[in-house]
Amino acid sequence: MYAQVLDQNDSGVKSREDMSEQEQIFQARIDAGEKIEPKDWMPDAYRAMLIRQIGQHAHSEIVGQLPEGNWITRAPTLERKAILLAKVQDEAGHGLYLYAAAETLGVSRDQLTEMLHQGRMKYSSIFNYPTLTWADIGAVGWLVDGAAIMNQVPLQRTSYGPYARAMVRICKEESFHQRQGFAIMMKMANGNDAQRRMAQDALDRMWFPSLMMFGPPDKDSTHSTRSMAWRIKINGNDELRQKFVDQTAPQIEFLSLTCPDNNLKWNEEKQGYDYTDPDWKEFFAVLKGNGPCNKERLGARVKAWEDGAWVRDGLMAHARKNAARTVAKGENENVQ
């Protein structure tokens, strides 16, 4: 899964003259394509921007377990069940990996979790949509993971070393996820009438929310300049969205499904598809908390965390007792 770059407080790029000497050296390293590592000096704003982005990305992986987990117990064959379980487990692994990358910037997983639960940090808006039929599990893999890959492949070259390296592994797994999603869609599209109806319905509901995953149009996005200068972000939102549409439109045709966008049409001149933008009012409403599942998704995460407090406390208490026993044993042996 993936995090949209949301809420970034990006006040633009400093000119070279306005930079301190340290900042100039830092920028020169980034411009030369060097990786910034945890112990290197970095501007506070760079650190804050990365914490926000990696944190949102990690939260998206964790919250993203919920819509897919919704179908594990109802998966239609043992093989599909095993594949879906493995996939959702991968997503949790990505979350863990990304929280660890964020921790190299001096923020703990617990702090990030608290910010998510208090609504001070976001996760990808796509997970606030429901998974209503089995075809949605196909569509999530095909479209949502497909969009995620489009965003994440360039992030393998992002300037912060731990994030870039995490992306290498995550991208490998995501591309497998996308293929399994498309495999489900092929089965459904070639299946009986009910299955075809599920497949079309899933595409109808997921198409525009998937386009939203690339963030608002560049012309309305004031956030991008500085993060691009720092190579935290590599491509513009519209560029990636176009690439996604160009890749996906022929796949829709291959499946003999109908895109819910009547304006989707090949444009010979621009060598890409024309398409309708998603409803950005809906996008911002979902971000604000007014999507179909916002309350349920965050509520489920908060409940899991609160219900699990006694488990975490219990295991920590046991670890402390064990440590004390080990010390006491060592002292006894010394006395003897």
């Binding site: 117990t73 379980l85 959702v88 488990v311």
Partner: peptide, 10 residues
């Protein structure tokens, strides 16, 4: 598998 996404810690 009913626990998926709801456990006390990742």
């Amino acid at each position: 598998s009913e626990w998926c996404g709801h456990a006390p810690v990742i």
